[in-house]
């Protein structure tokens, strides 16, 4: 019998770069159903339902206004406080939601993964996509607040052409979250130590990203002789957030294509690395999870 007749070959180890994107595509119906499941089941048996999508950022914004705007007196680049905080919190919420959902992929789905095979990547991909709904609704809230300010007051903000980069920014944010998430979930199947780090790491990360303050205030600050502004730009999320704010609010100044490209390359490399590691781990994680 000739070798070509075999359609399935199960071996101990795959080649490092043997990544079956085609297989993932074959299971697109499954991804679609996972997305539907995530969305449909999220707020079942709650009274407010999807309204919670709006309550969450609204509460956060009020809190930020009191703590950072009021008590700490951190400026918002002349933009109305609710708008400034809402812009940051919408993006960050999407990023951290995706990250925390995908970082538990293996542990949360051990039950299904232990019983049937399908490309494991379908689960994190579906999570990142289904979170877009919530992001969309929150972005809607942002635009409504923006419109209200524009009609009845002074938003202190204006659109710039950089707003057209929006789809790319979302893609980058999703890619980063997916990359970090699957890398994390692959590393935590056997040793759960990193999960402990993760839970407080994400909240610390938010303060390293210009969410509740503008990047401009770091402009002329130095820490042990290093420019804080530059240091913060190395955080791959910073250029995304800053570009979004510059595009939609026109506040501060454009961070520069150099940093945006850096962030994009960072995302691509991270995602590739994440997929390679994830692919390696998925083959035997059932024995160690």
């Amino acid at each position: 019998m000739s070798e070509e007749n075999w359609t399935t070959v199960i071996k101990p180890k795959n080649k490092l770069l043997e990544i079956n994107i085609k297989e993932l595509w074959d299971y697109r119906d499954l991804i679609a159903l996972f997305i539907k499941r995530n969305i449909v089941t999220q707020y079942k048996q709650t009274v407010l339902g999807p309204l919670w999508f709006i309550v969450q950022p609204a509460m956060s914004v009020i809190m930020y206004m009191i703590v950072f705007g009021g008590i700490a007196g951190i400026p918002t680049d002349g933009v109305a406080q609710p708008l400034f905080y809402l812009a940051g919190t919408c993006l960050w919420q999407y990023f951290s939601d995706c990250l925390s959902r995908t970082s538990n992929t293996f542990v949360d789905n051990a039950g299904i993964f232990g019983k049937v095979y399908f490309p494991r990547l379908a689960v994190p991909v579906a999570n990142v996509v289904s979170n877009l709904l919530r992001f969309g609704i929150q972005l809607g809230l942002f635009l409504v607040v923006y419109a209200v300010y524009a009609l009845f007051g002074d938003p202190g903000a204006h659109f710039t052409w950089y707003a057209l980069l929006f789809p790319v920014l979302v893609l980058m944010l999703a890619g980063l979250a997916l990359g970090f998430g699957i890398l994390f979930s692959s590393m935590t199947t056997k040793y759960r130590d990193l999960q402990v780090l993760f839970s407080f790491g994400v909240s610390l990360w938010m303060y390293a990203t210009p969410i509740v303050y503008p990047l401009t205030i770091a402009k002329s600050k130095f820490w042990h002789g290093i420019s804080v502004h530059k240091l913060m730009c190395f955080n791959p999320v910073t250029p995304i957030i800053e570009t979004f704010k510059y595009g939609f609010l026109g506040c501060g100044e454009f961070i520069g294509w150099r940093w945006l490209v850096y962030s994009f390359v960072f995302m691509v490399v991270l995602l590739a690395l994440g997929i390679v590691v994830f692919n390696k781990v998925q083959r035997s994680f059932m024995d160690t999870v």
Partner: peptide
């Protein structure tokens, strides 16, 4: 069923 990988050896299947 490809839930876990073998330590050694190969399985070949048609279909």
């Amino acid at each position: 069923s490809k839930v876990t990988a073998p330590t050694t050896g190969v399985i070949k299947a048609k279909g």
